[in-house]
Design a protein around this nucleic acid. Sequence first.
DNA 1: AACCTGACGTTGG
DNA 2: CCCAACGCCAGGT
Length: 134
Amino acid sequence: MKEEYLRIYAAVAAIPRGHVACYGEIAARAGLPRRARLAGRALRETPSDMELPWHRIVRADGRIAFPEGSRHFREQSRRLRAEGIEVRNARVRMSAHGLHHDLDREIWGAAGKHPAVDRVRKPAIKSSQAPTAR
DNA sequence: AACCTGACGTTGG
DNA sequence: CCCAACGCCAGGT
């Protein structure tokens, strides 16, 4: 087993119950910034005998990566709900269950993500949304 | 080697 | 919301 994969598995295992993390975050926590795809690949090839909270990994926007309705999709939804994470319209609320490492992101939105570190960004404050999608 | 394909992420239209 | 285009990179054909 590749050592990179092991670090990714360790990062996944470190996500607390009731919380979620996106692929990019897992990669970064594994010391592999900008390697979100690798995180996905590693998860896809998780040894069957290894127990990981793989269901806590979703895309950056909170959406479940599997095709909606697929077996994996349903299983992931079930596991998330089993630990109190609401799944609506194939997605979870990152603002509520994601791991917030710093407050800047909470206040200023997604400023300072991975591929944009060397790119200029215009700061923008966005107002919270009304309970439309419920 | 060339090309394709993803459990990905962002920007821009 | 959808889509295209990048950037990224390991594996498969």
